[in-house]
Design a protein around this nucleic acid. Structure first.
Length: 107
DNA sequence: AAACTGACTTCTC
DNA sequence: GGAGAAGCCAGTT
């Protein structure tokens, strides 16, 4: 049911994130149609109604830094990403390698 | 219905 | 390069 545009779109995109890669809130917001809705994206991740279906842990900040995580904390999130094969740059994700659609988006 | 909050982004100093 | 401030969106209460 497409009653909630952004919500549905954001969740759909989040589910489409390939394993081993991560997307930024701004990127999902942009794909959803609102590049300024990055905040809303994060909020939806926090809600995460489709928890097992919505890999919110694959969503990171624009600078690659991990942010809160409703599943235990950024620590858990980092471990999960590392477990998925995401490249980390210290305490941040190496967007240069593990960012989703890093070669196409950002026109 | 209105107001506040929030897992963001981007600019400027 | 690091720190601070402003702006925008959607959802929740």
């Amino acid at each position: 049911m497409s009653k909630n545009l952004f919500r549905d779109k954001i969740y759909a995109l989040t589910k489409q994130i390939p394993l081993g890669k991560v997307a930024t809130y701004g990127q999902l917001a942009r794909l959803a149609g609102n590049p300024q809705a990055a905040r809303a994206v994060g909020m939806l991740m926090k809600m995460n109604p489709d928890a097992p279906n919505t890999p919110c842990h694959r969503v990171v900040a624009a600078n690659g830094g991990l942010t809160g995580y409703s599943g235990g904390g950024v620590s858990t999130k980092k471990e999960m990403l590392l477990s998925e094969g995401v490249s980390f740059k210290g305490d941040k994700v190496d967007l240069a390698i593990s960012k989703w659609n890093n070669n196409l988006e950002r026109k």
